[in-house]
Amino acid sequence: MKKLKVNLHLIEACNYRCRHCFAHFDKHNVLTPETWINIIDNAVASGMVTSFNFAGGEPLLYPHLTSLAEYANSLGCKCSVITNGSCIDEEWIKNNVSLFTTIGFSLDSFFPDTLRKIGRCDTNGRVLDLDRIKEIFTLIKKYNPSIKIKVNTVVSAINKDETPGELIRKHDLPVDRWKILRMSPFENDRFSNKDITVTDEEYTEYITRNLSAFGINTISEKVLYNTDAGMEIVCESNLNGTYIMIDAGGYLVDDTKNSNYVRVINCADTPFSDGISKLTFDSEIYEARYKK
Rank of each mutant, 00 (worst) to 15 (best):
L4R: 10
K5G: 14
N7E: 11
L10N: 09
E12S: 12
C14M: 00
F22S: 13
A23M: 02
A23F: 00
F25Q: 06
D26A: 14
H28A: 11
N29Y: 09
N29W: 06
V30N: 01
V30G: 01
L31H: 05
L31V: 09
W36N: 07
I40D: 08
D41N: 15
V44A: 11
S46D: 07
T50K: 13
G57K: 04
L61Y: 02
L65N: 07
T66E: 15
A69Y: 00
E70I: 14
Y71I: 07
N73F: 03
L75A: 10
L75S: 09
G76K: 04
K78Y: 04
V81S: 06
N96K: 07
F105H: 02
F105M: 05
S106W: 03
S109E: 02
F110G: 02
P112F: 05
I118G: 02
G119Y: 02
R120G: 07
N124T: 04
G125T: 05
G125D: 01
R126H: 13
L128G: 04
L130P: 03
D131L: 09
R132L: 06
R132Q: 09
E135Q: 11
I136A: 08
T138V: 12
I140N: 11
K141F: 07
K141H: 10
K141W: 05
Y143W: 08
N144A: 14
S146K: 13
K148G: 13
V151C: 12
V155K: 00
I158V: 14
N159W: 01
N159Q: 00
K160R: 13
D161L: 06
E162C: 07
E162K: 02
T163H: 01
E166M: 08
R169E: 12
R169I: 07
D172H: 15
P174N: 07
R182L: 10
R182M: 11
N193R: 04
V198G: 05
T199F: 06
D200W: 01
E202F: 08
R209I: 10
N210C: 14
S212N: 10
A213C: 05
F214P: 02
L224K: 04
D228R: 09
I233V: 12
I233L: 06
I233M: 03
L239R: 05
L239S: 09
I246R: 06
D247L: 04
A248N: 15
A248L: 03
G249C: 12
Y261H: 02
I265W: 08
I265E: 12
C267F: 00
F272M: 08
G275H: 03
G275F: 00
I276K: 02
K278C: 01
T280E: 09
E287F: 03
A288C: 00
K291T: 13
